[in-house]
Nucleic acid binder design. Structure first.
Lengths: 391, 391
DNA sequence: AGTCAGGATGGTAACGCTACCATTGAAACG
DNA sequence: CGTTTCAATGGTAGCGTTACCATCCTGACT
């Protein structure tokens, strides 16, 4: 029980710290911290001196120390199911960018959409001390996963669900509007026999796309007073194989459709493969359009016109929302203020680069047309700094 | 210059800390730390008590604090170029798993293989305080990128280069051996007119695969004393489009080949597409095999036999190596001891699951055969704890 | 019995940074 | 000219953990 004798310490010092910078710049560490973190209460001369010292010493702040002191560095979980790998990679790129920007860690967890698997996955996430979760498709539709996350009281951001649950945070494009526009485009090309391949029935985005497609047809029928024949439709499951089956049925019909709208690119690719096997020339004999979660498909099958989702951006946006929510909760904001939807528009690309990209593609691949659908962001209303009673 | 008066502090406390656990378990925080970190110097009874307390309080260690105290939490850079997205997503999954395991952050940086772009990318990484870099294909072949990283003295792990530079750390499969085995397999099916589509000439793996292909043919020719005709070869560039061009030329020949070995899956997919357009049935009329950086291709074109790289595992292994190197350097080991290659074998899947997976595939898709190539791990020899003069 | 090895545990001091005041000086105000 | 205001800066105390000893035992070995 006697006290140990204090000894001289000798932990090795490695990098340059904020103190070194402070000494060189002739200011206190606090001031350096303020400069580095962009506080406004620093005079211009001081700021310049500090910045010079930072450059000279190649100082860069220690992430761990910063996180510890400022109580950041949370972990976010990303539950992924079995999406197309192109989707996942883009998603990861965007999510990681945002995570790095916020100084947050990303923990991946694979999860099948069964109750048992989702319970295990959520448990693993909790064991990994994550404080929030991202839910890209197809998991965002899984009731089991959502229930499990809800029970753990983890805040969740849903990405790319066709019809996100009410009172939830989510980032998505407007599947309905996008399909509507795409179909209008097909009609504008003069097609009269359109066919549609539906997506997986468990994903609400499938239905939205189907509704958008139909809406465009009805619109056209109203204009032309009733000439348009009813469209053919086949059920698909977002897989190449299911697209192949659907394409076989559709192309065997008499008369065959002149344009096929597949609910995603994998199935669109299958349609092209089947068409070519039957000796049809795409796009001369048959126009095929897809709905894209990916970029790769448009590279591989050059003739494919497809709706593009800015997946990386959506993922980054989702991380931003989740971080804001988590930190808001930590700061004592009301756990779940009356959530409401705030639809917004995210500019996906500058119009210029968009145009030039399209031009390049068109020149390489013939007729190509890209639709840039709106992105809807649903987020909780920002809570007031102090929960005033009124409002 | 007078001293500020010390005041009572009141930072809010959020989570449960190691002290809470220590109090509940009736031990010191140090002992809890030892239990949590798996130290051996803890009695079983104490360990059990601590573990019970951990569970009871749902304690999980604060990453930032741990990193700060143990001087971990480094950032690793991942420079990615323009690989197939399927490749990237698998790579990211593996790399993130390992990064999480080591408590390390992963920073992504996109980089074109030009000198200007690579300089900028490396500079951004350095600004982000990364202490090491991962180099997946195709960037691992870029002299500009390597030079830039070398100049910054960043340790680098190369992944999946066909012929990694000497004295470097790298994780790769044996492209030569894999191509050799695959070609042997084609020959064993009785094929006599084989064709090959080369990969991008800038990637050394392309040449390795081509050499392996040829080696198998020579082997067969020796056995049969000279009957085998010279194989047809077309240059490709790993893209679907280049595979299409190559396939057109190969299939127009008389007599046409009965088997085509494409250097990657994208090109193999193109071969299948072209074959179908010509009315050939795959695999009845033509056997197509690929060499795979991806998993998706084998899902999409069911008939495709392909060599599978365990990309996620390779990425995780690369992160492990990089972390070991970085920490070794920090611990004062000699910066670059005589690096040497240590070829090793990484079991890709349990033999059982492999067999059953193959069986399932075969049953679904007809003839299918997967080759599991060896994975070579090149790593620096572990330096002695203290740099003794001799050896 | 005395000594010694080493297993088991605890105390203390960082790790590098930022939150939270305190303090200063100068401008703005009455 | 005294007072107030507020921009600018600094001091101190942690944030939660682990490294580095020191210390206490227990049992083995002289």
């Amino acid at each position: 029980m006697s006290k140990p004798v204090p000894r001289a310490r000798s932990r090795l010092r490695a990098g340059v710290t904020i103190k070194d910078v402070a000494r060189l710049a002739g200011v206190s560490p606090m001031t350096v911290s303020r400069v580095v973190n962009g506080s406004e209460y620093v005079s211009n001369t001081t700021r310049a001196a500090v910045q010079r010292a930072v450059r000279e010493l190649h100082y860069s702040p220690n992430l761990a120390a910063r996180n510890l002191a400022s109580e950041r560095g949370e972990r976010l979980g990303l539950l992924y199911g079995n999406p197309s790998s192109a989707y996942l990679s883009e998603f990861l790129v965007g999510a990681l960018e945002a995570a790095t920007r916020h100084g947050v860690q990303l923990v991946l967890e694979k999860c099948e959409p069964t109750p048992v698997a989702s319970r295990r996955a959520v448990r693993r996430l909790l064991a990994g001390a994550v404080v929030g979760a991202l839910l890209p498709p197809p998991l965002c539709e899984s009731a089991a996963v959502r229930a499990e996350l809800g029970a753990a009281r983890l805040p969740v951001v849903t990405v790319a669900a066709g019809r996100p649950p009410a009172e939830s945070m989510c980032v998505r494009i407007d599947d309905y509007a996008a399909a509507l526009e795409m179909t209008r485009y097909l009609l504008s090309l003069g097609h009269e026999r359109l066919a549609f391949i539906k997506g997986h029935p468990n994903q609400s985005a499938s239905e939205e796309r189907w509704l958008g497609f139909n809406a465009a047809l009805e619109e056209a029928a109203r204009g032309k007073r009733g000439g348009q024949p009813a469209p053919r439709m086949e059920q698909g499951f977002f897989s190449f194989r299911s697209g192949l089956d659907a394409a076989r049925k559709l192309l065997a019909a008499h008369p065959a459709p002149t344009a096929i709208f597949a609910s995603n690119d994998d199935m669109a690719a299958a349609v092209i493969a089947e068409a070519q096997r039957r000796g049809l020339d795409v796009p001369r004999d048959l126009t095929v359009v897809g709905f894209d979660d990916t970029l790769i498909a448009s590279t591989i099958w050059p003739e494919l016109t497809t709706i593009q989702q800015p997946i990386a951006r959506m993922a980054a946006e989702a991380v931003d929302m989740l971080v804001a929510e988590v930190r808001g909760r930590a700061a004592g904001e009301r756990p779940r203020p009356d959530a409401r939807r705030v639809p917004g528009v995210l500019p996906t690309r500058a119009a210029g680069s968009q145009a030039s990209a399209a031009a390049t593609d068109a020149q390489r691949n013939g007729p190509l047309h890209r639709l840039i659908p709106h992105v809807l962001i649903t987020r909780e209303s920002a809570a007031a700094p102090k929960p005033a009673r009124q409002t």
